[in-house]
Design a protein around this nucleic acid. Structure first.
Lengths: 182, 182
DNA sequence: TGAAATATGTCAATGAAACTGACGTAATTG
DNA sequence: CAATTACGTCAGTTTCATTGACATATTTCA
């Protein structure tokens, strides 16, 4: 087994050669270098699902994030939202304005502090947020249902990747260290 | 215990009340709704580390992604890189040009197919890529070292969040469903 | 060999999503 | 009543992506 011999020695997790949903895990993929990439690929596909829905509404990821957190934490203030998203109020305002004008989010003046604008989803907004959560939940539950997903972070992240892409990702990652077998 | 009663019933993983590095896991946080947010926060902090370093060089995340994959898979072709990153060649070209002109990445004409440009990191490029990998690896190994991290995806993701922020995230997530306690 | 496909590069315009800096207004705090 | 806080907004800039069109070199295949 020449490839496993070429692997870096640092392997913090003693996991076995586990297959996820037909795609070979291809030996112990447990360096944190691997996790860096798996996180990239998993997140790429994770946000890809909602992106397709949002495009139909002329919205982007920025709208999604706002809608999600307002839906989940009704009564959120602007300041709290800014702290969560880590963007400037100018950036937030652009997308928030869209969502308010198009009837997905509503504002109420704060009761204890009338300077605050408490944010809530309208019915329409909650429905859209629900659709977006649904596709992400579907990917997550499918990933968690994979026999090995709970066993280790790497298997979980691998299971989060679009099934059709998993083989390509595994193939790529099997190439590390070798001189470019392009 | 009113809060746990307010939780959605779907809880695919039977995990216990586990504490990660001092931050309370605050009961079983195992709905996939929670995972959606944990993934957001974990990824936010995960890319935040390299961002600070990149800023010193006048580079952004796009540069990071290119540098990372070229460093890790020397001899990568343009087409392969495009497939990994899922961007257009025009987008890639902008950042790739920066990295080549400033001596972080070098091109070689392919040997078997002379149309291909095989990408390699220079010493400087590999050094920078190493610095960036280091900070991300540090976060990952620290997260994996947490006693509960391997036990479940949610604990792993929680452990990936900046320690100083974990309490705030837990506090926020404990608020779900309640009418805005802003 | 010669036409078609492939791999890459590039010009131009556009859009999305962030940024800085400055300023204004309303409400609360002390 | 002055200072602070919460929010909104105007103006300009940057990063990172897009689409569309076109050029060039190389390989493949009929």
């Amino acid at each position: 087994m020449p490839r496993s011999a070429a692997r870096p020695a640092a392997c913090p997790l003693p996991i076995a050669d586990i297959r996820v949903d037909g795609a070979a895990a291809d030996g112990p993929t447990c360096s944190s270098d691997d996790l860096i990439e798996l996180l990239f690929f998993a997140y790429r596909d994770f946000v890809g699902d909602p992106d397709r829905i949002l495009a139909e509404y002329g919205f982007g990821r920025a709208h999604h994030r706002v809608l999600h957190f307002v839906d989940r934490y009704p009564g959120l203030t602007i300041a709290e939202l800014l702290d969560i998203l880590r963007i400037t109020k100018q950036s937030l305002n652009r997308v928030l304005k869209d969502l308010i004008e198009q009837g997905y989010i509503a504002q109420k003046t704060g009761t204890s502090d009338r300077r605050q604008r408490l944010l809530y989803c309208t019915q329409t907004g909650a429905a859209l947020a629900g659709d977006l959560t649904r596709v992400q939940t579907r990917r997550l539950t499918r990933a968690l249902a994979a026999p090995a997903a709970a066993a280790s972070p790497e298997n979980f992240l691998l299971a989060m990747i679009e099934p059709d892409e998993r083989a390509a990702v595994s193939r790529l990652m099997a190439r590390r260290g070798q001189q470019g077998t392009a």
